[in-house]
Design a protein around this nucleic acid. Structure first.
Lengths: 221, 221
DNA sequence: CCTACCGATCGGTAGG
DNA sequence: CCTACCGATCGGTAGG
């Protein structure tokens, strides 16, 4: 809650949020958190354009117009939901990518971290993947930069593994997309109340990615 | 264009399309194809709820109201775009899944078929994955049934491979989701004008899926 | 936080 | 009579 850092964050969001700043809409509050939570849920269910401000108002118990005492715009809500989701993924992966452990072990940890974020923040993950393209200007650029940073963290694990001879050589970028596909797709089907835990799915995916469908399992090496 | 088959198809779509049938809106025409093509493009770019009938009209060179001489509703357009996309995927995979070839070979063919459908029908694929949840009633059930059939075709290859000892034993359902994740995610990043062809990406994914990141490549077996 | 509005636009339909 | 389309407008709702 350092006001200096917050001012920097506000300045980076461009015109819409600056207007909000001048109105004080960005000031944190319990009500504001309620609105963000409602946005996460309603956007994930109906999509950004399919969700109306009335929907959000009903979800939080306010009239449509009253929401604007807490936020600057519908677009600002979309950015905040997506940005918070992106931060969850980055925060979970950063220490794993920077660790000195073998690449295969870090790959397993990366799958676990990713699966646990999806399991714990499925609404934000859905909004991230489905609605980021409706962001405009700086908000969009900021989110795409975080997405690229996240992919670069995964790629660094792949490149380390190839350099160390742990992984067979190949197109690190393509291999990274291949690995991330399985991780990213989780938001489409994984349910915390399903038969498998996030960690179990992550471990299964890591085993498959490392050993392959026609290879030996990790216990048979 | 057998009118009997068309009547069955109409009946299966529920009330909205039956209304269309009674007005003749479902009768094929060049103009109707133009509208469907425009819907595919505009829905893929703006999303279903973000695209207005005015957008569709502009894309096809008609006023908004004139579209209703050719279609019954915006919802009907969404269904038809998604259904045609689903049929492309099913039509490409069905003969591969039914083939008597080894499972590993069929898996490679499945990746190729899927990647080529994504490459050739990227707009329909995007609309399929992002907008199917905005379908209602029977239209939604029909699409989910096709999605399940497609997944079952992939799973049959996995099960055959495990039964034949080509693939190591495991949870066929989870392995299928893992394989399909890489295939499905293609619509997010694959571009036909990129450095790799759809077939090249498919082959790389098949090699990785079969041999794994830490295993030997197909030429080193 | 509300009611009461704005300029505009929504999906869909009217008569001709 | 048909098709393919027009300009205008329906009742409601959008973000603000």
């Amino acid at each position: 809650m350092d006001p200096g850092r917050e001012a920097v964050a506000i300045a980076s969001l461009g015109e819409a949020v600056e207007r909000a700043g001048s109105k004080g809409a960005l000031r944190p509050s319990r009500r504001r958190d309620d609105v963000l939570r409602a946005a996460r849920r309603v956007f994930s269910q109906k999509g950004y354009h399919g969700a109306s401000m009335r929907d959000l108002g009903e979800a939080v118990g306010l009239r449509r117009g009253s929401l604007y005492a807490h936020i600057a715009s519908k677009a600002e809500l979309l950015f905040e939901v997506i940005d918070a989701g992106a931060d969850e993924f980055l925060r979970a992966l950063a220490p794993i990518a920077a660790s000195p452990r073998p690449a295969a072990e870090r790959l397993r940890q990366a799958f676990r971290a990713h699966a646990e974020v999806v399991a714990g923040h499925s609404e934000a993950a859905t909004v991230f993947f489905h609605e980021w393209r409706f962001l405009a200007g700086e908000a969009r650029a900021l989110i795409l930069a975080k997405r690229d940073r996240y992919e670069a963290l995964w790629r660094s694990i792949v490149e380390d593994g190839m350099a160390a001879g742990e992984f067979r050589p190949g197109d690190a970028r393509l291999v990274t997309i291949w690995l991330l596909s399985a991780a990213n797709w989780l938001y489409q089907w994984f349910r915390p109340d399903g038969p498998l835990s996030a960690a179990a799915v992550a471990d299964a995916f890591a085993d498959l990615a490392l050993s392959g469908l026609a290879g030996r399992g990790p216990g048979e090496a």
